[in-house]
Design a binder for these strands. Sequence first.
DNA 1: TTGTGTTAGTGTTATTTATACACTTTTACA
DNA 2: TGTAAAAGTGTATAAATAACACTAACACAA
Lengths: 245, 245
Amino acid sequence: MSNRKLNNYISVDCVIFGFDSEKLNVLVVDRTLKADDGSDEFSDLTLTGNHIYEDETIVEAADRILYDLTGLRNIYLEQFKTFAAPDRLKKENDRKWLLHDNRDPDKRIVSIGFFALLATQKVTLEWKGRNVRWMPVEEVGELGFDHNLILSEALVAMRNKLIHEPIGFELLPDKFTLSQLQKVYEIILDTTFDKRNFRKKVGRMKYLIPLDEKQKGVAHKPARLYMFSREVYEKTRKEILNFLV
Amino acid sequence: MSNRKLNNYISVDCVIFGFDSEKLNVLVVDRTLKADDGSDEFSDLTLTGNHIYEDETIVEAADRILYDLTGLRNIYLEQFKTFAAPDRLKKENDRKWLLHDNRDPDKRIVSIGFFALLATQKVTLEWKGRNVRWMPVEEVGELGFDHNLILSEALVAMRNKLIHEPIGFELLPDKFTLSQLQKVYEIILDTTFDKRNFRKKVGRMKYLIPLDEKQKGVAHKPARLYMFSREVYEKTRKEILNFLV
DNA sequence: TTGTGTTAGTGTTATTTATACACTTTTACA
DNA sequence: TGTAAAAGTGTATAAATAACACTAACACAA
């Protein structure tokens, strides 16, 4: 084993999940570059990442990246894992991109991985003219760098969290129906729930606040709208210790 | 905001928890250094950390650190969070240590935090003559760098995991009694459980294997010994989706 | 050898939660 | 005014949780 200590690049990568009431999507950056002679073009899809600046904390960097891409603040954002395999930059395309960015492709890049949750409708993709787009998680093919690994670990972490804590709300608009909420869980956990039992269960959650407001313009019985109260949740969560689940 | 990209030191810090059938301990390094003239001595307590070498993955570095300090391999080890506030090295003592280690105290150090779980009895502290010792988590005072923060976040992550997944076993010897297991949960979660109900609950877990073996040399009815089967656990865990806990 | 201290080990009942299952209501639109 | 489409609602059975107290087996001391 070599004993050489390394200086490393640090990057914060955000796996931004967006739910569109049909499926789970992830925000990807589409990069295409032409060589000087206009011929030797290379392109790829990646997750959204950036450096940490000198006077930033990790969370500030993640918030900034999220804001740059979506124009949104106060979005659910969680650090889930850090990645730094020495050989994570082996692909030829990756090397080209690193050189293009003035980074040494033989140097390790440490990625601090975050995942964010939001409703796709909240985002205006034209924001700042960045070339980003939603891609259904099911349809994601090969990504640049080791972003397929980061995405799949983000999915594991997100599903795990979804099972144990009420974060399904974060994937919906501020006001949502119980059917929408059920669908979030069904799609992300790839299962189905009985409607009545699901409603009994979430009905016990004090932080799920029923509003005096209904859906409008739907061609069926309009559903009551609900919202999530973070305040009530923080208050009650301490009382509930789900030993050994 | 400054736009200067930084190169950063990366370190892997391990919060090594050890249970001694009475309380939860953490392994700390006691460093004392004399200045050249023998007078200007400075010392501190820190968690156990080290660099990542050039050809190592993060996990390999964490395993190596754990092995260096305890002589043990195949110990439960989990990456829980990465730390990198820009002002985390403000204490005067920290600056001295960084200078002593030939590191620039104005440069950011990114710490990738792991926690490890084991029974204190497994460790021979004299291993390699490192100056480490067990300290009850309750009694930990001020640590060097931002290690108090790292420790408290490790505790949160570990308790959280303990509630949702069967990792209590990892804090016990390979063969253990049900009373010992109960005590792990009671002490770490700071609560008490009814003995019969606890046994009914863990009795349902297929991965808790009763052995045809009893305690010896105890001045009371000897308890049956059990062991944890990771195999059985991995097999059954997929079946159990604890939706919304 | 007998007694004492100490922890192991076990069952029942009442309450709460989980599961399985089908019909009526309300709206938009043709 | 009929039709399509999702909303909303109750009951019965099974399973899990919670509360509660005594006997069994050993080491050691008297």
